[in-house]
């Protein structure tokens, strides 16, 4: 018996060490970037001297600021559009009549967007936007921001839909039914009961769509238009030229802002009574 206890605690120790090692691995490059953002030199990779020069010149660089703004705008647009589409899709799927064929088809179509390599999305959308914008004369499709939102929404919608479906599937439909029984119209019961129930899922979906859009590089590099270069594409083209510490500085600033925003969101959710573990799981789409 005593032997057994010792063996157990050994496994436990190994697991705790492993957990720590994985965290170090996950944060190592981020720490390096944060450190190198305080490099006053000309090239990111060669550390010259400590200073905040990169932050100053990064914030004064119009091209960088414009690309960050483009990314933020595209991400906001994507979050809105994908959340609307995903909410409708997710609720419809979760409340579909058993045995109907369309949910299977819709799920398959959405799943297909998830298994399509991003580069395929990119090369599919570029000619399509050209066809719509130039050949068909639908001028919005020539607008860089519009293109980014449309493209990012196409691959975010599936994820938002699945998150919201999972949320709704976990909730009994009896509440909505009760509302109906009490005389609420279909629309009112949808608005006053279903939507609030789906709330956490909608929120998680929007956050996910925003994150995906903000991080997207490959697809964006295909559909982008001059004047609307999103931040990741700017970085990717900078890799090909020469990386300056400004990239690290702006990234660090964005990371700090994101963390603050998330902490704020977490705080608000916590006040509304969710446990922290539940919140993160909701965000992770579980």
């Amino acid at each position: 018996m005593p032997e057994r206890i010792r063996r157990r605690s050994l496994t436990d120790t190994a697991l705790w060490v492993w957990g720590a090692v994985v965290f170090v691995f996950l944060f190592l490059p981020i720490a390096v970037i944060v450190l190198y953002s305080f490099n006053n030199g000309r090239l990111l990779a060669s550390f010259d001297e400590l200073g905040v020069q990169a932050y100053v010149s990064g914030l004064q660089n119009d091209v960088i600021i414009a690309s960050v703004m483009t990314s933020l705008k595209a991400a906001t647009g994507t979050a809105l559009l994908a959340t609307v589409l995903g909410t409708f899709g997710g609720i419809a799927l979760a409340r579909a009549t058993k045995g109907a064929k369309w949910p299977v088809l819709l799920t398959a179509l959405l799943a297909l967007t998830l298994v399509t390599p991003e580069v395929v999305d990119g090369i599919a959308m570029l000619p399509w936007f050209v066809t719509l914008g130039v050949d068909a004369g639908l001028t919005p499709f020539n607008n860089g921001l519009f293109r980014l939102v449309i493209a990012h929404t196409a691959f975010s919608t599936a994820i938002v839909t699945f998150i919201i479906r999972a949320r709704m599937a976990g909730i009994d439909s009896s509440l909505e039914e009760a509302a109906e029984d009490l005389g609420a119209t279909k629309w009112r019961s949808f608005r006053d009961v279903t939507l609030p129930l789906a709330g956490p899922g909608i929120f998680a979906g929007a956050l996910m769509a925003f994150t995906l859009s903000l991080d997207n590089t490959i697809l964006s590099s295909f559909v982008q238009q001059p004047g609307y270069t999103p931040w990741p594409v700017y970085i990717f083209s900078a890799v090909r030229v020469a990386l300056r510490p400004e990239v690290a500085a702006i990234s660090t600033a964005m990371l700090v802002l994101t963390l603050l925003a998330l902490a704020l969101v977490g705080l608000v959710l916590k006040r509304s009574g969710n446990s922290s573990s539940q919140i993160v799981k909701t965000m992770a789409g579980s």
Partner: peptide, 28 residues
């Protein structure tokens, strides 16, 4: 109630969008 929400009507925007901005370009 189920007939309303379980109906595919609610999923039409999603359908339309995915067909027009995903299926069609990929088919292209």
């Amino acid at each position: 109630f189920r007939k309303f929400l379980g109906d595919s009507a609610l999923s039409f925007p999603t359908w339309a969008y995915m067909l027009f901005f995903f299926a069609l370009p990929v088919a292209l």
